[in-house]
Nucleic acid binder design. Structure first.
Length: 961
RNA sequence: GCCGAGGUGGCGGAAUAGGCAGACGCGCGGGACUCAAAAUCCCGUGCCCUGCAGAAGGGCGUGUGGGUUCGACUCCCACCCUCGGCACCA
């Protein structure tokens, strides 16, 4: 019999507008019973969508279709992140106005969504570049300004020379621009900031209440970077005090120098006259370094002595003040105390500059180690040591012995006694002791350090060039692992706190400092304030006016929006290049004044858009607070992990701010977050012709233009690398349903995955089988209207019936739980297979056939809505799929089926027995059935059963000897 | 360096609560259809060994080494590797 072939193009065109026309995707915004706010991160409309983008939108569409069938009142809006640098740069490349570029792309995106069958509540469409949207972005700026959370400050900022714009810290990725990857430079500029640091603690703490992927929360946690420690005040001889932040106040007695960031404001005042030239030169050199160069850990620790001294508040010793570029102005107080014995960077710095190192924390291992250079001891020493149970080993340049900490007090005098006349020795681990025949010097202060060093130099001419005891000890390989350590341990050489055990050291020192008014407990964050000024045209103008008389004056709310001026020129312009934009009367005094010529960072636009969807056309307010408070937080937010820090942190901040302002009752915008993985595809690189589209690659990976061998890399699809798969072509060849099914089936949606042409064909073959099966069943059972009666089922029917219900269960649970829709598709495929086999039986129950097909169509409809809508109507069900409730499963159907129980004997599966589920659920019954079965009996012959474990519905394990 | 995720057939992956390892798909092999090919459909497919007309049987197997358990991809200890984020953050 010749059946009508599956013709996806014809079917899909037929239904493309159906769902929209019926209004299935329109949220009933006034009704908030059983509401569900589903949100895909809105795109920046760039060119065309590729198959990789489908990961996000198709997943969302499937979830929303499922939710609608489950009876949820779903809000599923879409908009355009259309303002900002990305759009502007792309438009410049095309030589057109950013607005034209944006709207052309929006039309294209919408066409492609329609082709995919991806639907939204289009009545709520917004674009951040439209005045009725950015008016409210400006309003948020004004509110932040009112509260002192938007401020202007001069400082070193990140500057991207290629984009001609400043960048926020979050937009510098590994020292490079997030858009164009150029190395970022530093410039001294006056810019606008949002005080996100005021929210650091809450942004950190509230991560706990979010149902987000653990790694995204961790990334935010690390970015916020909370550190607990103490702020300590160091007096200086020149006068001004220096505040330092440290996480290790317990090492204070070991602070032998101070280091300021080269940009530190106190540097000029603290510089001695004779050091001024050197200091200025160093500061200038630091300025010229890029972020990448400056923060490279490989770099030698450079720095310059200011020529003046501070006082260590604990030891009261004079310590030199230096500047060095490894100390950053933006973190803590921009100054550190140098504790070379217990901080790796300070240690390197001290070694490079010959600064003294004083150990003040015992090595956590409790070990001490003795070193004696060759010829340093008398022949009587080994015997004396042996009496203490200490055995020395010879190394290239001397003898080494392990000394238990508690033996130290006895070893040192002994050592002194048996030392050669011109000998010396060192014991490190529990502090450093330098032993001479007539005395032992404990390195516990700078004075002792100096004295020990000078004696060493006198004894051993080879040490003449050493500038510190640390240099001497570091040169001995056998001691290195004990000379430096950064662990917690018992405090040493620390005056009143000596002997304080490691776990209490920090707390005790902090208390000691606070009692004396020398310092206090403090918390510091890595998070910096959000720099939001951008010197480019395509963005929301900052609503501020600079008046020569009144200073900086905000534009009154009633005068919003500050409209972006129209321009005819295309290029890297800022508002400063548009003279007619600048003049404006001062809102306060009415005199002539000038508009601020910066625009806002694109991430400001997207930091509140999820609120606007509730009342997108409201002209009087940014959003309707009453409805927003009913609909938000967003129940499920889906987007790329690349926004883990940037957008998601900013949106959380603005939400908390609006909450504090009283506009929002909630303080976290996205209850659950799901990050989908990228789609990769091979990209081909020719040294002369650059990126070559995969389709043009010649056999043997050759360039079509020059025949050169191409370099292949499997990377995320992107237009610039020309390795995109076009949905238009896929749809023309296979249909949208095939692309959708493959996209959802190819792997777990959160994982990065490579696109496979063969995989697409697999989805295509499945849909053919499904189509043919449906037509077969329609022929055989199309007219049946009765429901099947499970009471009359034979074993085959019962098995199929159970399979149907377990499939419904599986698919439902995936949508409601972890969203591993790839396994839901696999389950549907399995069921389709079993249904096909049953349908071939001429005696098959038509009522069961029809019911199975009906439910199968519904289960598959979120994945492949076109073919399912078509078959649904052929089934004559009247209503549309989306008006039909999602199938429910019957636990009874599952209970009645037989299950196969594997039987393990001594850990190996030796038999499989079919048992009715009711019996399998009861351990005793299960055990009895298994032991009675012939297969098991044969296996147990000659063995004595020692133990039986029966796991209900799973397996039976028998131990026999 | 620090933090996080992960390592399962030829490949993508499954095993959701310690209970049949390899679901589902790709690829591959064989067959059907065809003059032929493509497409499609059906069957088989972890590795190794024994065996055979067809069967059947056994051993090994989830990065490596150890441990807990009747039973480990799953839990514990140590290590190796890959990917992602951060990185002179005091």
């Amino acid at each position: 019999m010749n059946r009508e072939p599956y013709n996806p193009q014809a079917i899909e065109e037929k239904w493309r507008d159906f769902w929209r026309e019926r209004g299935f995707f329109k949220a009933k915004i006034q009704e908030t019973r059983k509401k569900f706010y589903y949100l895909n991160m809105f795109p920046y409309p760039s060119g065309k969508l590729h198959a990789g983008h489908g990961r996000n939108y198709i997943l969302g569409d499937a979830i929303v279709r499922f939710l609608l069938m489950r009876g949820w009142n779903v809000l599923n809006p879409m908009g355009w992140d259309a303002f900002g640098l990305p759009a502007e740069n792309a438009a410049i490349e095309q030589g057109i106005h950013p607005r034209d570029w944006t709207w052309t792309n929006i039309r294209e995106f919408k066409r492609q969504f329609r082709a995919w069958g991806v639907e939204y509540d289009w009545d709520r469409e917004i674009a951040t570049c439209e005045p009725d949207y950015y008016k409210w972005t400006q309003w948020i700026f004004l509110k932040l300004y009112e509260r002192g959370l938007a401020y202007r400050a001069k400082g070193k900022v990140n500057w991207c020379p290629h984009c001609a714009v400043v960048l926020a810290n979050e937009q510098v990725i590994g020292g490079r621009c997030w858009r164009c990857h150029s190395p970022v430079e530093k410039r001294e500029l006056e810019q606008w900031y949002f005080k996100i640091t005021a929210y650091a603690e809450r942004l950190l703490r509230d991560l706990d209440k979010l149902d987000w992927p653990e790694h995204v929360k961790k990334m935010q946690e690390n970015w916020i970077g909370r550190s607990e420690g103490a702020e300590i005040v160091f007096p200086t001889e020149k006068g001004p005090e220096i505040k330092v932040f440290t996480t290790r106040p317990d090492t204070l007695w070991g602070a032998t120098f101070l280091v300021l960031a080269p940009e530190h404001p106190l540097v000029p005042e603290l510089t001695a006259w004779e050091q001024r030239a050197a200091v200025e030169a160093y500061r200038a050199a630091t300025d010229r370094l890029t972020e990448v160069e400056r923060t490279s850990t490989e770099k030698e620790k450079t720095g310059v002595f200011l020529g003046t001294y501070a006082l260590n508040p604990a030891t009261r010793e004079r310590i030199p003040i230096w500047i060095a570029d490894y100390v950053l102005m933006g973190y803590g107080t921009g100054a550190i105390m140098g504790v070379p014995a217990h901080d790796e960077r300070d240690f390197q710095f001290a070694l490079s500059h010959g600064l003294p190192v004083i150990p003040v924390i015992a090595h956590p291992s409790g070990e001490a180690r003795l070193f004696l250079p060759s010829g340093a001891f008398a022949s009587s020493l080994p015997a004396a040591f042996a009496s203490l149970g200490i055995h020395a080993e010879s190394t290239e340049d001397g003898a080494v012995a392990r000394v238990p900490a508690e033996q130290l007090a006895r070893v040192l005098p002994l050592l002194q006694r048996h030392m050669a006349e011109q000998g010396w020795g060192a014991v490190v681990g529990q502090g450093w002791q330098i032993v001479f025949p007539d005395e032992t010097i404990n390195i516990g202060s700078a004075a002792e350090e100096r004295r020990a060093l000078s004696r060493l130099k006198t004894i051993d001419p080879a040490l003449a060039d050493k500038r510190s005891v640390a240099e001497v000890l570091w040169a001995i390989p056998a001691l290195r692992d004990l000379v430096f350590h950064a662990g917690f341990g018992t405090m040493l050489n620390s005056g009143p706190l000596s002997g304080a055990p490691g776990p209490e050291a920090v707390r005790k020192t902090t208390a000691w400092l606070e009692e004396r008014g020398l310092g206090k407990a403090a918390v510091t964050y890595k998070l910096r304030d959000w720099l939001i000024s951008r010197q480019r045209y395509w963005g929301a103008p900052i609503p501020m006016i600079h008046c020569p008389r009144c200073g900086i004056v905000p534009v009154p709310e009633k005068d919003l929006p500050v409209l972006l001026p129209e321009v005819n020129r295309i290029g890297k312009l800022g508002l400063a290049d548009i003279p007619e934009f600048i003049p404006a009367p001062c809102p306060r005094c009415g005199g002539p004044a000038q508009r601020d010529t910066d625009t806002m960072d694109t991430f400001v636009d997207s930091s509140w858009y999820f609120l606007r969807f509730i009342s997108p056309k409201d002209g009087d307010r940014p959003f309707d607070p009453e409805l927003v408070n009913k609909w938000l937080p967003v129940d499920l937010y889906v987007g790329g992990v690349e926004h883990a820090i940037l957008h998601l942190l900013y949106a959380r901040f603005i939400t908390k701010f609006l909450h504090d302002l009283g506009w929002l009752s909630f303080d976290e915008p996205f209850k659950r977050l799901f990050t989908q993985g990228m789609v990769t595809y091979p990209a081909f690189w020719c040294p002369t012709h650059h990126w070559i589209p995969p389709k043009e690659v010649q056999p043997g990976n050759r360039c079509p233009k020059c025949g050169a061998e191409l370099t292949v890399s499997v990377v995320a699809m992107s237009k610039s690398k020309k390795n995109v798969v076009s949905p238009d072509e896929l749809i023309a060849q296979y249909g949208a349903d095939t692309e959708r099914l493959y996209t959802l089936f190819m792997g777990p949606p959160e994982k990065e995955i490579e696109w496979s042409e063969e995989g697409v064909r697999g989805a295509w073959r499945f849909l053919h089988r499904f189509w043919n099966l449906a037509l077969l069943i329609l022929e055989r059972a199309g007219n049946t209207r009765e429901d099947p009666d499970p009471r009359g089922f034979g074993p085959r029917e019962q098995a199929l019936w159970a399979k149907l219900h377990s499939t419904i269960k599986k698919v439902t649970e995936e949508f409601e739980g972890r969203l591993a829709l790839n396994t839901a598709v696999a389950a549907i495929m399995e069921f389709t297979h079993e249904l096909s086999q049953y349908a071939e039986d001429p005696a098959a129950d038509p009522r069961l056939l029809r019911r199975a097909l009906r439910d199968l169509i519904l289960l598959l409809s979120p994945f492949t809505p076109f073919i399912c809508e078509e078959l649904w109507h052929r089934l004559g069900e009247g209503k549309a799929v989306l008006e039909t409730p999602w199938p429910s499963y019957d636990p009874q159907a599952l209970a009645e089926a037989e299950v196969e129980i594997p039987v393990q004997i001594n850990g190996k599966v030796r038999a499989r027995i079919r048992v009715p589920r009711a019996k399998a659920a009861d351990p005793q019954a299960l055990e009895a059935v298994v032991l009675a079965s012939p297969e098991v009996q044969v296996r147990l012959q000659g063995l004595r059963v020692e133990k039986i474990i029966a796991v209900p519905e799973k397996l039976v394990s028998i131990v026999a000897r």
